[in-house]
């Protein structure tokens, strides 16, 4: 069986047979534009956050040099919050962009704007344009559009401490804000799909069992992640969901999530998770720290074990440090590709 990277990934996400797992890095929270890649290619961040051709070019550099079998855009988690009004620090070559200041002090003070207008704001169109260029030029390689999940996006426009309180204190407005954010994310995802994205990945680091606990995770995270996932499905592509941290507090809720693959952090044993939920498509989870540490042999061993454990898609556990080495990443991608 000879599959293109795009066929292989889509087959896995549609529960069809493959020769071996794909090895990918989705962009967004899992940005793979590391310093090593940028210093070699000369296409650098933060500039590439703003220009479609640079973004597409850097994404291509990443794919070529790392061996990851996809394009992952954008390179940050701030596209959504920027458009929704928060102040962004666009970072440096080494340091990814971050929220400088959330725009609203509480869920009750959020100003609701027209979603269609917001799609023309900030970097939304640039990301979609970058995706379109990549999809056109490389039809065999999947473009993955990365979204910041609804809970994290909400906590990027409302002061996060206040937001977490108000999940209990002001449930009406919390639900209202999350509905608004989810609707916006769906519209953004649709734009990326129209531009040729083969799949959408959602990273929602604030939506963890460790932060929210099982009750709030079910009431908010499951509810609005599924809303966004359904929207992505309606747009016609599969959805991958990354859940940060230890799953244990919310593990019974995992089957309720309608994502086509679930990616987890390194401390989660994906083999055991699969034993418990055999129908789950798993993705992960080569330790981010191991990859940063740079010991290629250890990376290869860990990767080999994950492939043997039957993990469906191999990927860094919780994103990549920008100071990770290309050698370590290639040890990971190379091991997967030799594993048929």
């Amino acid at each position: 069986m000879s599959l293109s990277p795009k066929e292989r990934l889509l087959n896995v996400l549609h529960n069809k047979n493959v020769d071996r797992p794909p090895v990918i890095c989705t962009g967004g929270m899992m940005n793979a534009a590391i310093v090593d890649v940028m210093t070699q290619s000369g296409r650098t961040l933060p500039e590439a956050h703003f220009e479609a051709d640079l973004m597409a070019g850097l994404s291509r550099d990443v794919q070529e040099q790392t061996g990851f079998e996809n394009f992952g855009i954008p390179f940050c988690m701030t596209v959504e919050a920027e458009v929704l009004g928060s102040e962004i620090d666009f970072g440096t070559l080494e340091c990814e962009p971050k929220i400088r200041q959330e725009v609203f002090p509480s869920v009750g003070t959020v100003i609701y704007r027209d979603i269609r207008q917001m799609l023309d704001a900030g970097r939304i169109r640039k990301v979609a344009e970058a995706g379109l260029r990549l999809a056109k030029a490389h039809p065999d390689v999947p473009v993955i559009g990365s979204l910041t999940g609804p809970v994290s996006t909400a906590a990027s426009i409302v002061d996060p401490m206040q937001f977490l309180r108000e999940l209990r204190k002001d449930r009406e407005n919390s639900h209202r804000v999350l509905t608004y954010v989810a609707d916006f994310l769906i519209a953004y995802a649709r734009l990326l799909v129209d531009g040729g994205a083969s799949a959408i990945c959602i990273g929602d680091p604030t939506a963890t069992g460790e932060i929210l606990g099982p009750r709030a995770f079910e009431e908010y995270a499951v509810e609005y992640l599924n809303k966004v996932i359904d929207g992505i499905h309606d747009a016609g592509v599969p959805a991958i969901l990354h859940i940060c941290g230890d799953l244990k507090a919310v593990k019974p809720l995992v089957p309720k999530l309608r994502a086509d693959a679930i990616s987890t952090d390194a401390m989660v044993n994906l083999r055991l998770l699969k034993e418990e939920y055999p129908t789950l498509t798993t993705m992960g989870n080569v330790s981010t720290y191991l990859l940063e540490d740079g010991d290629s042999e250890k990376v290869a061993r860990t990767t080999e074990r994950l492939v043997k454990d039957g993990v469906d898609i191999i990927s860094p556990a919780c994103g990549l440090s920008t100071s990770s080495s290309l050698a370590a990443i290639n040890a990971m991608t190379g091991t997967v590709k030799e594993s048929r």
């Binding site: 977490l164 209990r168 932060i211 709030a216």
Partner: peptide
């Protein structure tokens, strides 16, 4: 003990 999580702890501190 993972009975309370961050939202609960914040409300307690309030």
């Amino acid at each position: 003990e993972e009975e309370y999580f961050i939202p609960e702890l914040l409300m307690c501190s309030d």
